[in-house]
């Protein structure tokens, strides 16, 4: 599997650390209530198909990257710096 780092270009998957679903970029408001926070902290979808993950270019430039990919076909649709996706 190859992932295109928006900074470094296409790199081997080994250079990246997988963090999980990109929910950290969509943090609930402090007063959103226990249900929203329970969802945010503990509950994850497990889609067969398109999913957005956070990957860390650990062995490379150190950027956090949002990767949109397909869990069935392993196709990578797009990658974007997390700092941009969060805006």
């Amino acid at each position: 599997m190859r992932i295109t780092c928006p900074i470094c270009g296409e790199r081997d998957r080994r250079e990246f650390y997988y963090q999980g679903a990109a929910v950290a970029l969509d943090r609930p408001a402090p007063d959103a209530g226990p249900q929203a926070w329970d969802d945010y902290v503990h509950l994850r979808d497990n889609p067969a198909g398109r999913t957005c993950d956070l990957w860390f270019h650990e062995m490379g430039c150190g950027a956090w990257i949002v990767v949109e990919r397909d869990t069935v076909t392993h196709e990578v649709y797009s990658t974007e710096l997390a700092e941009k996706a969060a805006r």
Binding site: C8, R11, R14, E15, E58, M59, G60, C61, G62
Partner: peptide, 10 residues
Amino acid sequence: TARTQVQHMM
């Protein structure tokens, strides 16, 4: 130049 890995070392 590149940041990458040499075996397991960054």
